[in-house]
């Protein structure tokens, strides 16, 4: 089975859990910017092997499904329809053979995920089908999807209860997006970074009390934060060390930069903060112009929240698998 890209949308790419374990060779992880949303989309179509899904940014793709397919949409709210039928999010949908799925604009948030049962089956590179747009690794040398791309879908057994019928058939239940999508855009938990103490007093306060906004100049590599210029007490000359997603760096311009999924594996700018891992997907869902505020957290608190979040996700994944079996 193939899916043909009719319209790619602003920036759509194939993403999975990414490519961990190769940073020593200069290869970053990449992967879905909102991992729980990606995981839930896969779970809703019964994929359990970390299959690749499409990540759409700000606008969606239009795709033709050659054969009947089972899909799910998660992440940022996105308008979706096949012909006159609207396609609901956060649930499992059957599409008839020949369906053209139109994904429209993303009203709030930044990134939506489309999973298909069987997963997009492009060749895996270093164990991942993720496109690293920055390092040019992945499907078609790691570029964004283009009109005319034909994406193979892996073959799997049909989903239990899969019934031929109308053009779009959602299952009779759906997930509450609430815990998995931050509609309120609450402040993000931030740990003090290695060089936080070297900020001047005003900048130390601003980092935790100030309102920043996400710059237009943001992508899968980094979010640039507008609104306040921060300063060190004295300039620091640092040698290159490992860099990580979630690190808030301060380049000489004074504009803070939060590294994201496609962060380079090394960096030499002062690290003034580290966003708690549990809140990184929420930053990935901010769009240019959105407000970004931080509140200070401790490592203990961050780890406790992360563990609780992962437990909740694991329970939900279990529930979805059970529901799919008994549908």
């Amino acid at each position: 089975m193939n899916v043909t890209v009719i319209k790619p949308g602003l920036l759509s790419s194939l993403q999975d859990a990414g490519r961990p374990g190769h940073a020593a060779l200069g290869v970053g992880r990449a992967g879905a910017m909102d991992p729980p949303a990606w995981q839930l989309a896969n779970a809703l179509v019964g994929n359990v092997g970390g299959e690749a899904a499409i990540e759409c940014t700000l606008t969606g793709s239009s795709l033709r499904f050659e054969q009947a397919a089972v899909i799910a949409l998660t992440g940022a709210p996105i308008a979706a329809h096949v012909g006159e039928h609207s396609v609901p999010m956060w649930t499992t949908c059957h599409l008839a053979a020949g369906s053209v799925l139109h994904l429209g604009g993303i009203a709030s948030g930044c990134r939506s995920y489309l999973a298909v049962r069987g997963g997009f089956d492009v060749p895996a590179l270093l164990g991942s089908r993720s496109s690293d747009l920055h390092a040019h690794i992945g499907y078609a040398h790691g570029r964004a999807l283009r009109a005319g791309d034909v994406l193979p879908v892996g073959t799997t057994a049909p989903l239990a209860g899969s019934a031929a019928g109308g053009e779009v058939q959602p299952l009779g239940w759906s997930l509450d997006p609430q815990p998995w999508f931050d509609f309120a855009q609450r402040p993000l938990a931030l740990l003090r970074g290695s060089h936080w103490a070297q900020l001047d007093a005003a900048s130390q306060r601003l980092l935790f009390d100030g309102k920043f906004s996400l710059s237009k100049d943001s992508n899968r590599t980094a979010s640039r934060l507008d609104g306040h210029t921060l300063q060190l007490q004295t300039p620091l000359e640092l040698i290159s060390e490992a860099a990580l997603p979630g690190t808030v760096q301060l380049p000489p311009s004074g504009q803070p930069i939060a590294l994201l999924a496609e962060a380079p594996v090394t960096g030499g700018y002062p690290r003034i903060g580290q966003i708690a891992m549990v809140d990184l997907p929420r930053l990935a869902q901010r769009r240019p112009g959105d407000t970004v505020c931080f509140h200070e957290t401790t490592l203990d608190e961050a780890l406790t929240r992360l563990a609780a979040h992962r437990q909740r996700l694991a329970r939900l994944l279990g529930t979805i698998a059970q529901r799919l079996e008994h549908t």
């Binding site: 961990p20 940073a23 020593a24 290159s240 060390e241 990580l244 594996v265 563990a307």
Partner: peptide, 16 residues
């Protein structure tokens, strides 16, 4: 995961 740099090694692990 161990990632060497000039004068440091990054240790990356799954906290769970």
């Amino acid at each position: 995961e161990c990632v060497p740099a000039y004068a440091s090694v990054l240790l990356r692990f799954d906290p769970q």
